[in-house]
Amino acid sequence: MSLTLEEVEHIANLARLRLSDEEKERYRQQLSAILEYAARLQELDTSQIPPTSSVLPPRSVLRGDEPRTDLTLEQILANAPQSEERQFRVPPVLE
């Protein structure tokens, strides 16, 4: 299972990762090896097996509708790399 460079670039794009050419090639090889190894799962017949998305049983875990003012507002804003007028600032989307 060998990934092409285009596939690596596509994934890196989906994941918003800027990669150097060298990185792209390196990951191409490494990911291909890992996926090759992962392909052995196809040996198993799972047609009658349900997927496990959680090891816990289904359960209604619900919260009441009472509001709580969070005391951490200022600290949340304090972590921002750039902010203005209580809002987080980012550059525009350019074409």
Binding site: E66, R68, D70, L73, E85, R86
Partner: peptide
């Protein structure tokens, strides 16, 4: 509803300044 879907912040912010009804959960910390 009075609060948000996944945290206990007030849901209606129409009359409030920006970033006042927030908490670590709804800001994805």
């Amino acid at each position: 509803t009075t609060t948000k879907i996944f945290c206990s912040c007030k849901a209606d912010s129409w009359f409030d300044p920006p970033n006042t009804n927030i908490c670590p959960v709804c800001t994805g910390l």
